[in-house]
Amino acid sequence: MKKIKIAAGIFWAILCLLLILVLFPGLNNFSSGISRFPFMKINPNLTGGEAAEQIVMKSCTLVVRKPVFDGLIGERKQGFVQIDWRGNLPEIISDTIDYDLDKKPDFVIRIGRSESSTVLKPLNPKVRKVGISTPTSYGWSARIKIEK
């Protein structure tokens, strides 16, 4: 029994040695392997959710994302909707958004880029307040807090 234990310990140690030897040369392959696991995607609470609608305007594109209510188990009551403006943005951004795509406007948002001011006018009682409004590498993004 003692000898079997010793042999098993040494075997496991040698296996670990081999694992470390292949780790660095194989890192890219292992990483892309692990990236294919079903849970290896960023939560919509952080990405802002998938695009629901794209509206191409004169100099920029307006992207309305799907509302995000994702919780640990099921959906939460409170969530947000992210709006992105991509391209050459005017100094003052002013848009009326229909985030639930029911053909009725839900809020009007007005962003003054130079003074970083964001004013929200809710037209739907489910729209609460501005969460994030920030310049981005592609233009501007705003997250508006909403209720289900």
């Binding site: 990483s31 990236s35 290896m40 995607k41 960023i42 939560n43 952080l46 990405t47 640990l72």
Partner: peptide
């Protein structure tokens, strides 16, 4: 949730 709660890049 089958997702990662960190605002980084997967690959």
């Amino acid at each position: 949730t089958k997702s990662i709660i960190f605002p980084g890049t997967i690959l």
